[in-house]
Design a protein around this nucleic acid. Structure first.
Lengths: 193, 193
DNA sequence: CGTCAAACGGGACGGGGTTCCGTTTGACGA
DNA sequence: TCGTCAAACGGAACCCCGTCCCGTTTGACG
């Protein structure tokens, strides 16, 4: 657990540790069924704690979401350089990486929507995604641009916001395949005319 | 006024007519400053009516939004065939029409977001946009496909949802230009490889 | 085993959407 | 002009939800 070494420096009470774990488990479960905007009380109830306990451990909902998905975001970030090394061209590496990102987003009920929210409470979340993933995307994008495979002046941030936006609402309403739209967007990177 | 003939069949009280007009004006003004999800009370206050009066005239927020923007949506719908007739190729007509649609969306604070919302209260709105604009887009898309300018199997609904999604949050957060992203998406329609 | 700060839980508060109900008012016929 | 009455009104009431507060519990440590 990567949590352990963070806590190790200053010991906390055993019940606090237990509750934090229970909250993470409960939140993960509730997010799956009710989305990342599920009522705080639902999460607290499932974890068997009071509502204040959530705020004590995770001051904003963004902090809770980050904690729940940190592992997967890290994995996505680490996949970038690997793809760049293993793919035939930078463009295919970029396309594959974006596929990973899309897979991550569309399987998280409502996460894409909340990522673009202008709600002040989600700025942490937005910042975390930007800090962690935009540099990765930038490297892929730069590589593809230098290879002459891409002719638009889009920044990595713009591209990722566009991809994120296309994923909004992908899990519901039949007849909308976010993956397909993203494919078209990525195909559009290759031409400027 | 196209409203007149609708009401003509069954006369209503003068104050009811007046309030409906005041509400439309107030809503339009509030939507500009606070977005389409502005508190009901704000709109009622600006119109100088009670909150219940809003619900009496517009049972759901979607009905109010539709009423406020109906003219512009109609104009957008009517522009489709005109562009098809006046543009050199169907693809350029489609691109120009999508520009119109994007211009409409990005100037309406939060409308794009609400369009994709899964909130049951907005189903009317979603349905109205689909009913009115998807057929127009379908004609443009079919024409471009028949002309061999487009090689993706995207439906008009998918395309429009994608465009709508890309417009979410376009009015805030510098460094994101929805128009540019949509250009890339539309450029992507031309190639499948 | 006693102490005490950390941690807890659930209720209170505030804001926003929706509904209810007693009051007002416009339309219309006498 | 005036009386009648249903349409329409306004705002308070209600409910849900996020957030905060405060009296109580509990784990750590000497």
């Amino acid at each position: 657990m990567s949590d352990d070494d963070q806590r190790a420096r200053r010991p906390r009470r055993a019940d606090a540790r237990r509750n934090e774990g229970a909250l993470l488990d409960a939140a993960a479960a509730v997010f799956v069924t009710s989305g990342v905007e599920a009522p705080v009380r639902d999460i607290a109830a499932r974890a068997g704690v009071g509502t204040a306990t959530i705020y004590r451990h995770f001051p904003t909902r963004a902090d809770l979401i980050i904690a729940v998905y940190r592992h997967q975001v890290e994995a996505c970030a680490e996949a970038g350089p690997e793809l760049l090394a293993s793919c035939p061209t930078p463009y295919t590496a970029l396309a594959r990486w974006i596929d990973l990102f899309v897979d991550f987003l569309v399987t998280k009920h409502g996460l894409a929507g909340v990522l673009q929210s202008d709600d002040a409470g989600f700025q942490n979340l937005h910042a975390y995604f930007v800090d962690r993933l935009v540099p990765v995307c930038t490297r892929l994008l730069d590589a593809a641009t230098e290879a002459g495979e891409i002719r638009t002046g889009l920044t990595a941030l713009e591209l990722m916001r566009g991809v994120g936006n296309l994923c909004i609402g992908a899990e519901r309403s039949v007849g909308y395949d976010a993956r397909r739209l993203v494919e078209v967007l990525v195909a559009g990177l290759r031409r400027t005319d």
